[in-house]
Design a protein around this nucleic acid. Structure first.
Ligand SMILES: Nc1ncnc2c1ncn2[C@H]1C[C@H](O)[C@@H](COP(=O)(O)OP(=O)(O)OP(=O)(O)O)O1
Ligand SMILES: Nc1ncnc2c1ncn2[C@H]1C[C@H](O)[C@@H](COP(=O)(O)OP(=O)(O)OP(=O)(O)O)O1
Ligand SMILES: [Mg+2]
Ligand SMILES: [Mg+2]
Ligand SMILES: [Mg+2]
Ligand SMILES: [Mg+2]
Lengths: 564, 564
DNA sequence: ACTAAATTG
DNA sequence: ATATCAATTTAGT
DNA sequence: GTCCGGGCG
DNA sequence: TGGACGCCCGGAC
């Protein structure tokens, strides 16, 4: 009974492992949640999550309060407010554009897919890429057990005792990512990439050029892109086809994996689609905002319009516009002048909680070395240095300092970093340390003029360094990059969904190689093969360590919505 | 004809020398403006003013545009907007408080008054305190010619060839200011002082205590304060009595000089008063905002309500609220928790335009010395250093830098200042140099903890200084503080206005001294004189240089309006 | 400028 | 027992 | 945090 | 011929 209560309390705790996000309907959710709760309770992590949830609940309470306060201003005020919102909606609606076509492509269970391709024995087993600490992704078999991205491995194992952990090979994913981006480039040289395994392509020009800007033509094009990806990588992708970036992205998930969904560029069709989508599916609505909206009675996007008045009382104009546009299925239809330059470089590591300041210092030194090296590689300098930690109780704290002059040397970075580390003392138990540099300048060109050089402030670091030269204990980073040779797939890949591509093992009459591809695509291959194109590309391989993928620009709402 | 055109163009140039501000009705405005224009045209100053005016005109144009755009949204939108404003007005109106009494006291032609008191020969002549460069104030005789505060002396001389320039004696004004503040303190220990010569007093407690919280009692109290001031300083003051700070201040001017105005705490009386006041009289509305409002058809405060819709389209919520509250005669009725601590210290000087960087450097050094000295005197440190210049064309530019650590030494300040000076190069012709320090900390106490001390960043100044030790060329500062002995006034001071105090030369039967005072006040003096109070105070004199008055907190709207 | 929080893959 | 890491944006101060 | 501009006496 | 000085706040970036 006590347990019961705790659990039902806990149900309100926001979970990152939403059942709304990945592609699986009608799973034994209660059982999964119960297992997660049992594995979570009484941990520092859980405790911290609870505190965060409490904060959010407080916020929600004050929001509800604010709503009541506003409602009590009387029917007149409510009328005025409603009218104002409707006016906004009309404004937004005016900007609706249905004449562009976007295709959003996203690889299926990307990391897992790569691993399965290279170890076909895994194909029919539940797998997770990662370790008992953290799962980056899981295949669809494992997902049926509730296994998710961002779930600690030990919980995944509880949910699915058969679960096999595959250590990540980041280099491979990077390489596959480059391959698909090469393909994207053919269809839209300015494609917007939102992660290694996905991109939004404005394909209106291609469609017009080909004279296939029709319902069928658009779907055929998505199919073509996906096939090309499969040919180049032996990995399946899914796609969403719609008239703007937001809808294209949201459509992608509908027929995942290895499927695609075409949302007709029709006002009514769009409404029908969007109004029944869970708000959490909207990029930009994460677990916190979802929780808030749920508490306001908003479950699916259609509810946003139903509760627009309440929403307008508690969100600022930017957020209100964002939510209304989402609910209307309105999104950016043109390429956003996205700033290409990276804005920050960071490195962080989790370790067994320690209070030992000297250990921390050593780690920080190696972080500085890493960052300094990366700055040099990228011919960059920085002005801001941020040191951040996560306490034993999962509190995170960061301290930063902005230097007046550009810096890039190990010495300068180390000095600033250590100054910040000191401000964090006394440390107590700490489980993560991180270092970030920001305010980047690339290619030490933009020295405005001689004057600014004359006026350059002196270095803010002390000449005498705390630095221990070359403490390169890089054993954390594994060397496991080499691409495992392809093992030919025997089985014909089946696809139950009508949108799936019919794939089969076919031999190229020119090069004699076997491929898993559609018949259409084989014809393409043959002509390519004559020119000795396809084969070469597949030999590309990268060298380096098995680091995590860095320099992936963060996702922003700008990608999906037009600003104003 | 050409001249004509230029002049009529020029009429649109905003003049600081508004005819609305000081107390004089129906003067030969055209003639005055013409003279000012003739003296101004073809000067760098005028050219710069014109550029600023052009900028404002551009802004006004875009505002009018915005208004049109909004109006064209249709009657429905206009209705909604109007309703929203009316709702706001109703909200504001709810907070109206009529039960407090504020008395705002302001010395008449303050500096001039002091000079005339000490040189009674000047009493019947037009005088201006200042020099051919700049007039700080003028007596009422000179004002009739159009002579104004902030007017350059040579223009004043053109307007009034008889004008006599009296060099300022800042020390005296400071001393007189202290005297009146002593008096204010008796009536409201928390009085809010807005300048040397004025203050807002919340006198409700005194009135209640005395049982004189009536129309008559309030006016009598103002009279009493003014009389006391006259006794202590031989200077006349005017007063405004109203239910909030804003109205009290605005009321003060009505019967200036040597008069007072009582605005009854009655909704209708207030409306009648405020709606006919020129907007420029509202503290916070200066020449730019006045110009903008005028162009929108707003001349007097009543027009604000007439044009509230248009105003709401082009001003943000803060400004809109400010304007609406002004128009409603709503102001703060309680003491604002005003931050007492000074926020910045600055020094600046105008000189014949020069390009000589070394001269500038020398000046900057002496400024640094001044500032460092002042910091020491005030037991203060600073973090921000700002260097600013005014170019030959009156453009002003400032460059600032915030150090991570508190500084107060001559060396540190000099180094930061020079770094900023360099960023201003190439200087070109420059007519003013200034130095400001901000982010002040007083009484080097608030060292938060040991950690913050440990983490203190190293000094950001170079040890090797550009400093030339002791370049104390202080010949700019004149030693002219000694209080000129009082010359007894012969004439009986006349007062035409009913609110004026009947003043006459009276001899005290106790001390035998002659005073200019009312009979009522003489009775008070006699008893004071027995206790040897009044006499002593008058002997107080300050020592020091004839510097400008510093450390006078800037005026902010907070003083008059309630926030939120 | 600095800090915390939210979000994405 | 065991809860990532890189990157970005926004809002508050 | 920096810079500009408006405002007041 | 020639147009001050010291202080404050708010907005934009
Ligand atoms: N929280 C995370 N932490 C670290 N890596 C992640 C995380 N989420 C996703 N990734 C990595 C692993 C994924 O394979 C890859 C692409 O993410 P994503 O497209 O969202 O899922 P997925 O490709 O694994 O499955 P699917 O797209 O089929 O739902 O990014
Ligand atoms: N630009 C300026 N504007 C106003 N006053 C200034 C200026 N520069 C210096 N001062 C000084 C001189 C004034 O005597 C003193 C008080 O200002 P203020 O009360 O506005 O005018 P005033 O006391 O001279 O005349 P009155 O109050 O009778 O209109 O501040
Ligand atoms: Mg994916
Ligand atoms: Mg993805
Ligand atoms: Mg005055
Ligand atoms: Mg005054």
């Amino acid at each position: 009974m006590e347990e019961e209560d705790k659990f039902s309390n806990n149900e309100k705790i926001m979970s990152s492992f939403t059942h709304e996000k990945a592609g699986m309907k009608g799973i034994n959710r209660e059982k999964i949640d119960k297992i997660i709760y049992e594995a979570s309770k009484n941990t520092d992590f859980f405790n911290h999550e609870q505190q965060k949830t409490d904060q959010v609940q407080k916020k929600i309470k004050s929001m509800k309060n604010e709503i009541q306060k506003n409602i009590q201003k009387g029917p007149r005020f409510i009328k005025e407010s409603s009218d104002e919102i409707d006016r906004k909606i009309r404004e937004f609606e005016k900007e609706r554009i249905l004449t562009e076509t976007w295709i959003h492509v996203d690889m299926d269970m990307f990391y897992a897919s790569v691993e399965i391709r290279d170890q076909p024995d895994l194909a029919d087993k539940p797998i997770a890429v990662g370790d008992t600490q953290m799962i980056t992704t899981a295949n669809y078999i494992a997902r049926r057990f509730g296994v998710r991205s961002a779930m600690p491995g030990f919980i995944g194992k509880k949910l699915c005792p058969e679960l096999i952990f595959v250590p990540p090979n980041f280099g491979k994913y990077q390489a596959e990512g480059e391959k698909i981006r090469e393909i994207f480039k053919e269809y839209d040289p300015n494609f917007e990439s939102m992660g290694l395994d996905e991109a939004n392509l404005l394909v209106t020009p291609v469609l017009r050029e080909r004279g296939t800007d029709t319902h069928e033509g658009r779907q055929a094009l998505a199919m073509e892109i996906r096939e090309k990806i499969f040919v180049e990588t032996q990995l399946t992708a899914s796609a969403g086809i719609a008239c703007n970036k937001l809808l294209a992205k949201m459509a992608t998930e509908i027929n995942k994996p290895n499927g695609q969904f075409y949302l007709q560029p029709d006002r009514d069709k769009i409404t029908e689609f969007i109004e029944q989508q869970k708000v959490r599916k909207v990029p930009g609505i994460g677990k916190v905002l979802e929780k808030i909206l749920n508490e306001l009675g908003v479950d699916v996007c259609g509810d946003i319009l139903k509760k627009k008045l309440e929403i307008s009382f508690v969100f600022n104009n930017t957020s209100l516009a964002f939510l209304l546009k989402s609910a209307l299925g309105l999104g950016s239809t043109s390429h956003t002048g996205v700033s290409e330059e990276q804005k920050s470089i960071s490195i962080s590591r989790t370790f067994p909680p320690t209070e030992n300041i000297d250990e921390i210092r050593k780690k920080l030194i190696t972080f500085c070395e890493n960052i300094a090296k990366e700055l040099e590689e990228k011919d960059a300098e920085c002005r801001n240095v941020t040191v951040f930690i996560k306490r034993g109780n999962y509190e995170t704290i960061n301290r930063s300092e902005t230097s007046k002059k550009l810096i890039n040397t190990l010495e300068d970075i180390t000095n600033l970093a250590f100054r910040q580390l000191e401000t964090l003392q006394p440390l107590g138990q700490i489980r993560l340390l991180g270092l970030k540099v920001g305010n980047l300048s690339f290619g030490r060109k933009k020295r405005k003029s001689i004057q600014s050089f004359l006026a350059e402030p002196p270095a803010e670091t002390e000449p005498k360094g705390v630095i221990q030269k070359k403490a390169t204990s890089e054993e954390e980073f594994v060397n496991s990059f080499l691409h495992t040779p392809l093992t030919p797939e025997k089985k014909v890949i089946e696809d139950a969904k009508p949108t799936g591509i019919k794939l089969m093992r076919l031999q190229c009459p020119v090069c004699g190689q076997w491929f898993t591809m559609s018949e259409y695509r084989m014809s393409v291959h043959v002509s390519e093969c004559v020119n000795d194109n396809g084969a070469k590309k597949r030999k590309v391989s990268l060298e380096g360590e098995n680091k995590r993928i860095k320099s992936q620009k963060g996702l922003t709402l700008d990608h999906f919505f037009t600003k104003k």
